[in-house]
Design a protein around this nucleic acid. Structure first.
Lengths: 369, 369
DNA sequence: AGAAAAAGTGTGTGCGTGCACACAAAATAT
DNA sequence: ATATTTTGTGTGCACGCACACACTTTTTCT
């Protein structure tokens, strides 16, 4: 296979009878170039179909972009937040040679203070960009306000705060995801049935997201004339701890033994499934995210459907977005809703296998405590 | 944000008190290096956490890898094969600066001869790698045999031919996809129902794939004790033309008016849906691939579920696989089964939006006739 | 008119790495 | 002991591009 000579800036220079410097000036609209030569250069670029080599450009420029990533810590391997992290690491590895330097900051899902602490550190570092999961509303608002003052672009993943002038939001359409949940729930229940929505909140989470989910879920039944057939109630448990959840479920089921379907609005459906199995309850169950517990209960049949919000892609895409913004000067889409995958036992395996990174040499610059 | 100095080969050299040449020799196991210095260098690399800059390496090496891509031509924008093509173009753009040069060769889905013609051209070009959709079994066997003689690695996408020593197969698990179809069909049908599998074949396609699909589909019902409840028959239509399909469907439905669910084994479910709508038939319908026709009929409700086999990712991943093989010397996984997405009206939009490439400057080196 | 400023253009160096080559030191052969 | 390999190590160029600098030509000012 003989080499196909790639057209370089030299080729263009020769073709247009000018020096590389002039080509450079034309490309970057820098310095003065006489109209005639400019025209000749532009023609040459067009004619030879010249595309600057991004590698060489990056190397020559040598500029760096520090990106701070602020997400919840994943306490274990199978935890939800290990998946976006995985995607973020993939993205970091992919773009590190282009000068994208990522630093990770983890906060405790149950402790706003750790969030604020980490934001302070990030502000001190004064990075070129930030990727964050704004799970604490007020703290996130404060933080992004400061970022805006410093003109540091930021990307939201997983959760959105509208009208924050983020560079982009990459994550699920929360309301629609619950609408889909409604659709799926309806399709696996008999004509008439009682349905329970289970929320688990610790502290003062994103209450608005929960509200939007409930709306979305109920909207499906409303729009499809199922209001008379399906009786939907909501149980909000102020904990994600197993014992506490079990206690509340027991209490509820004793009073409402007719429940036929449960929609769990977070990734802890497996807890409910375990409860059902403990008590031999035949109840349809629907939840979020392909975390380890849910995987097991999908297998065992305790969970019927999981809706997954492309967690790995979210992370990967976020890094890519900043890469395209910094290096290629591309303005990203303000909102990028990721696919909401419908996962059942039978197609589960492919989602687990496909996005696993099989590179060896990934070292993440982790900044802890 | 002050610059973080990246560790270069120079830094390592200074740290280990040797020249860059020696570092290079250690890294690439080339030439002779005294044991002491080797040790010092290895320590320095470890200590400084040195990672060679892939960009600089690629630039310095300057080697190129020509990759020929052989897939069916997409007659229109919404055609199935425009999706893998889209992914392939994304991959090409992503890796072109690394020296991956892609050339496209399109064949007519209904004409083996065009396939053979294109393979001849590819063999003449003598590329470094090939990506192909081996939809014609015999012709593909002949082709890959020749590739093996020339020691040109090749990657299958979309369809697999087992035991061909391909570098990798990136595509769906066909049998499992039909099994999933069975699961979904069962869940949307009443207890007792008649089910029809519709195959459309033009000429002598991949008969074995159809067989595996049928097996997979029926397997679900068998494994779930539905054999008595569901009566499954197969209709094979020797065309993909609307009029011909309609004729055969008419003939079949007149004889079998009790059909309650139809599983279409290719991407033409929309034809069947149109037929159903024309004749006011209330029949559940399940098919493959998010092509334009299916999108419309999902919206209208004529199609209940579409199984999509990550067509864009298939293409993107195929290019990536060859990149990793050539540039990073990574041996890919022999089989990479892509996610089988379950698509209903409600989550359809996200799949359409997410993988659309929004780069402007992609020019594909297309080689036609 | 000459001086000064502006416009237009070419040259050279560096980015980080791979590799060919030159050269020194040590080991072996004569 | 000298000649010849072998082994070990350093230097310099190339890759394609950006950018600083030097230089020449033209225009404007006084």
């Amino acid at each position: 296979m003989e080499k196909i000579r790639k057209v370089t800036i030299q080729d263009v220079a020769r073709y247009a009878n000018v020096s590389v410097g002039t080509i450079d000036r034309v490309i970057h609209n820098r310095g003065k170039v006489s109209p005639e030569k400019r025209k000749k250069v532009e023609e040459a670029i067009e004619k030879l179909n010249f595309n600057p080599n991004l590698l060489a450009r990056t190397l020559a420029l040598g500029n760096q972009f520090t990106v701070c990533i602020l997400i919840p810590a994943a306490p274990s391997e199978g935890h939800y937040w290990s998946m976006p992290l995985n995607g973020l690491e993939m993205g970091s590895a992919q773009f590190k040679d282009y000068g994208i330097i990522t630093q990770y900051f983890f906060y405790d899902l149950f402790d706003e203070k750790t969030f604020t602490q980490q934001t302070a550190k990030i502000l001190e570092i004064n990075p070129d960009g930030v990727i964050l999961a704004p799970l604490f509303l007020n703290e996130s608002k404060l933080f992004t306000e400061k970022l805006k003052d410093k003109e540091i672009p930021f990307v939201f993943i997983d959760a959105d705060i509208p009208n924050r002038q983020s560079l982009s939001y990459i994550g699920p359409d929360v309301k629609q995801s619950a609408y889909i949940a409604g659709r799926l729930m309806n399709s696996i229940l008999p004509e008439k049935a009682e349905i329970l929505i289970v929320n688990m909140v610790k502290g003062f989470d994103n209450a608005s997201a929960l509200k939007r989910m409930e709306e979305g879920f109920r909207a499906y039944f409303k729009e499809h004339g199922q209001e008379q057939n399906k009786h939907i109630t909501t149980l909000t448990i102020k904990s994600k701890q197993k014992d506490e959840v079990f206690r509340e479920l027991t209490k509820y089921y004793i009073k409402n033994p007719a429940v036929k379907g449960v929609f769990v609005t977070n990734s802890k459906a497996y807890l409910v499934s375990e409860f059902h199995q403990n008590h031999d309850l035949d109840i349809r169950l629907l939840g979020y995210d392909l975390v380890e517990g849910n995987i097991n209960h999908l297998k065992s049949g305790g969970i019927d459907v999981i809706i997954s919000q492309s967690p790995v892609q979210q992370g990967q895409r976020a890094v890519q977005t900043l890469f395209e913004f910094f290096i290629q000067k591309q303005e990203p889409e303000k909102i990028l809703h990721v696919p909401l995958d419908i996962i059942i036992r039978e197609n589960m395996g492919f989602y687990i296998g496909f996005n696993r990174q099989h590179r060896t040499e990934i070292k993440t610059t982790t900044v802890n405590n």
